[in-house]
Amino acid sequence: MTHFKIIFSGPVGAGKTTAIAAVSDIPPVTTDTEPTDETRNLKATTTIAMDYGVLHLDGDERVHLYGTPGQDRFSFMRPILAEGAIGVILLITNTRPAPLADLNEFLDAFHTVIQDTSLAVGVTGMDIHRHPSLDHYRQTLLHAHVTAPVFEVDARRRPDIALLVQALLLNIDPGLDDTRPPPTTEPPPAHTTARDYW
C-alpha cells in the first residue's frame, strides 16, 4: 500500500479547507475551532492543527491532502506536515492586506520542499480585489527564483482546484499525460478536417 501527500498551505482565510473539500473523496477532517485572536474578525472557525482529505486511487493507493494552519502561531506544524510531500499548493488571497508578502512568507516556509518537489499557486479573492494581479505574483516568484503555475481560483470550484493540482503534477513531470499510442508511420490522410477548439 503506497501513500503520498500533497500539502495545501497559505494564510488565514485563503480557502485551504474549502479547496481540500473540493477535491477530496471524503468529507475533510478538520481541526477547526473558534478563533480567539484577530482571526475571529475574518471567519467563524479556523484550522489549528491541520485539515485532512484523501484521493483514493486504484487498489489501496491513496494520496493524502493536508492543509496546514494559516495562523503564524501554528507555523511549527508546516514543516512537520510537509515532510515527504509530492508538492505544495499555496493558496494566497487578495482579500488580505499584503498578499505578496504572504506569498514570500510561505515561499520561505516551504523553501526546501519547493526546491525538492513542486509548487503551484492559486490566488483566491480576485473577484473582490483584482490587485495584485497574477503578473505581480509571477514577478514575486521570479524574484525568488521559483517557476510555478499561478492560477486565479475559486476554492469552492472543484474544476479550479483540480486544474491547480494537475498543474502541480505536470510541473514535476510534463510527460505525465502521455497515454496516447505511439505515432504510426503511415502517411497523413490526404485531407484533415480542421478541429473546433472553442
Binding site: 503506497t2 503520498f4 477535491v23 484521493l55 486511487l57 486504484d58 493507493e61 494520496v63 509530492i86 483540480a162 493540482v165 494537475q166 503534477l169 505536470l170 514535476i172 513531470d173 510534463p174 510527460g175 505525465l176 499525460d177 497515454t179
Partner: peptide, 17 residues
C-alpha cells in the same frame, strides 16, 4: 523529459482529477 520515478502514481492522480 526525464520521467519521475513516481510517474505511475502521479499519472493516476492526474487522471482521477
Amino acid at each position: 523529459i526525464n520521467p519521475t520515478p513516481r510517474r505511475g502514481l502521479l499519472r493516476k492522480v492526474f487522471d482521477k482529477l
